[in-house]
């Protein structure tokens, strides 16, 4: 579904992503883990078309992508952002946020679709006409997920979707993401600094360090400690160390 080859992104003099390649099959979930500045979010932004200054090969469903994307692309690929407080327009109700993708793509039947979307992410129908500040963090992230699903995309890009949430809410959102993927056969590319979160959702994980993908590892190998790169081993050790406590 997604094929990326030798992706490079420059910010002025600095090369933030230095030749990253990976492949994600349809209906699969690929995770990228790394520390801040490792380039993991930059890869996601290049993939989403938000940052057009990249070079290399990006194909989605066999179609090579150009830096500028058309409306069709955005119907098929959607994104969920890290901070649910910042990704919803503060002056727009949930209803407005959810209807926007439908209006942009000229999809009709708005009322029914919004009600269905709210039900799908387990939000009460009463939340429909609330403003973001009237919702909790978890509810906001549910709205953001519902918005991404409005145009019925095939690919969902997840940029640290739970790291601004409390752990109990994180569990609910992760479960929701797992359910949605199963129900809609979505392809996920997820970015997080939390190895356990990534491993929970993604069977295949790419470890990023200094703009390079130093290792791609299956989740079973990771859990069993069969790592090849020292950075992967270090991240794994830090994550398990706390679990043993």
């Amino acid at each position: 579904m997604i094929d990326i080859g030798d992706l490079r992104v420059r910010f002025g003099e600095v090369e933030a992503v230095k030749g990253v390649s990976f492949h994600v099959a349809r209906g699969a979930a690929f995770g990228m883990v790394g520390e801040s500045g490792s380039g993991k979010s930059t890869v996601l932004r290049a993939l989403s078309g938000l940052n057009p200054d990249w070079s290399g090969r990006v194909t989605i469903d066999g179609v090579a992508m150009t830096p500028r994307r058309g409306r069709d692309f955005y119907r098929r690929v959607q994104m969920v952002f890290q901070d649910p407080y910042g990704s919803l327009h503060p002056r727009q109700t949930v209803d407005r946020a959810l209807s926007e993708p439908l209006l942009v793509h000229g999809i009709g039947d708005i009322d029914r679709r919004i009600r269905a979307a709210l039900a799908e992410v387990a939000l009460p129908a009463a939340a429909r006409f609330r403003y973001p500040h009237q919702l909790s963090g978890g509810q906001r992230q549910r709205v953001a997920i519902a918005r991404a699903l409005m145009s019925e995309p095939e690919v969902l890009l997840l940029d640290e979707p739970t790291s601004a949430l409390d752990v109990s809410v994180q569990a609910e959102v992760l479960n929701l993401l797992a359910d949605l993927q199963a129900r809609r056969d979505l392809t996920y590319v997820m970015v997080s600094h939390n190895l356990a979160v990534i491993a929970h959702l993604c069977p295949m994980i790419g470890v990023m360090q200094g703009g390079e993908m130093v290792e791609q590892i299956g989740v079973d190998d990771l859990r069993a400690g069969r790592t090849k790169h020292p950075h992967t081993a270090e991240l794994r050790a830090l994550s398990t160390e706390l679990e043993e406590a």
């Binding site: 752990v167 979160v197 491993a199």
Partner: peptide, 30 residues
């Protein structure tokens, strides 16, 4: 004594975290 925590909230907080060492197909919700 964290492992012996008795309050359901503490237990819930511990359980609902994804871990590397003990994979759970579905996270328990608090």
């Amino acid at each position: 004594g964290l492992a012996q925590a008795t309050h359901p909230y503490t237990r819930g907080l511990l359980d609902c975290m994804p871990t590397l060492s003990h994979p759970k197909p579905r996270l328990p919700v608090l």
